[in-house]
Amino acid sequence: MRLRFKFAWLLALALASGTAPALAHGVIVEHRQVNAVELEARFETGEPMANAQVLVYAPGNPTEVWQEGTTDDQGRFSFTPDTSQPGSWEVMVRQAGHGVLTTIPVAASTSGGEPAATPATEVEAGSNSLISPSTTLSPVQRGITIGSVIWGFIGTALFFARGKR
């Protein structure tokens, strides 16, 4: 079963040094909005890959797991990459011997608490645009390719079935 991934990049509109303390009996809650990456793993059949294990690797350190977790019932998983380590983050999603290693580009953070500069393809007007792996073929292209391969097999059969000359 092949997996096809769609990434929903959630762009948070981080405020400049946006902290807002909430005080109550000595408890301080500060919040800051950050860039998170949400990914959605599905089987080729469209069925979500629920409870699959996810391993996140930081760029430049492919041997050590940076973060691990599991997808939810919808096959979704999100993590917040460390923008001080820009580059290609690798995410491995795997379940029952099926899995895929995929690369997510993360740009460097800019100074002044601004949100990390994001790749141009990533977000349009803050919407949850989905990014599919670029190697995905359209259904028509797939159909033509599969048809050509099958015709190759049939052609071979016909060639060898032509009988003795």
């Binding site: 391969v149 099958i150 097999f153 049939i154 071979t156 059969a157 016909l158 060898f160 079935a161």
Partner: peptide
């Protein structure tokens, strides 16, 4: 021919 068709 048989093998090729079954490969398909």
């Amino acid at each position: 021919p048989k093998a090729s068709l079954l490969t398909a």
